[in-house]
């Protein structure tokens, strides 16, 4: 059963016909040749496909395309503006916060969202005072908030460094 939908992907409006069973991830990768979001598990268990879906980080592998007609999708590729890397992406390069690179676009999208979420004052599972209006992204806060993005190469220590550098915290002692 097919349906025609429209997605705005990295600022570009795209109309496509998909099977109702097609996920947003497969719509991007198989229909639109947008392969920045990676498929690592296809079940919401690794975070490799993380994109910003209507501005928030989400997993397109668990989002049906037909249920997201009209959605706005930003991938790690789309975070770059006018050929300039997003500050998070630049920080990943500076900190060597990646190795094989497969989880990396998802990590970058997630990190960009972590900064926004912290800016909104959202607490995390390790925030000592849930009622506090502001959160400081120290190392443990960053690590907890980035834990939905698995990295098998083991770049976590550098990923925390990269996010801390953009957050403007030194991330605490190391």
């Amino acid at each position: 059963m097919d349906a025609t939908i429209t997605l705005t992907v990295d600022g570009r409006e795209r109309t496509l016909t998909v099977d109702t069973r097609t996920t947003v991830l497969d719509a991007l990768r198989e229909h639109l040749d947008v392969t920045s979001p990676k498929k690592g598990c296809d079940h919401g268990q690794c975070g490799s496909c993380t994109v910003l879906l209507d501005g928030r980080r989400a997993l397109p592998c668990l989002a049906l395309a037909v249920a997201h007609d009209g959605a706005d999708v930003t991938t790690a590729d789309g975070l770059a503006t006018d050929g300039e890397l997003h500050p998070v992406a630049r920080a990943f390069l500076d900190a060597d916060a990646y190795q094989c690179g497969y989880c990396t676009p998802g990590q970058v999208c997630s990190a960009a969202a972590v900064l926004a979420e912290a800016g909104e004052g959202w607490p995390s599972a390790v925030t000592p005072d849930l009622d506090a209006e502001r959160v400081t992204l120290d190392r443990s806060e960053i690590a907890e908030r980035m834990s939905g993005n698995l990295c098998r190469c083991g770049a976590y220590a550098n990923i925390v460094d990269a996010v801390a550098s953009v957050a403007g915290t030194d991330g605490g002692a190391r």
């Binding site: 990768r29 392969t35 920045s36 979001p37 990676k38 498929k39 991938t75 790690a76 590729d77 975070l79 770059a80 890397l85 992406a89 630049r90 990943f92 390069l93 500076d94 060597d96 990646y98 690179g101 497969y102 990396t104 676009p105 970058v108």
Partner: peptide
């Protein structure tokens, strides 16, 4: 730095199925 770094952090590096 890794020479393919910019392609990896933006996701434009193509892996086998891509």
């Amino acid at each position: 730095r890794r020479v393919e770094g910019p392609a990896k952090v933006t996701g434009t590096a193509r892996y086998a199925a891509e």
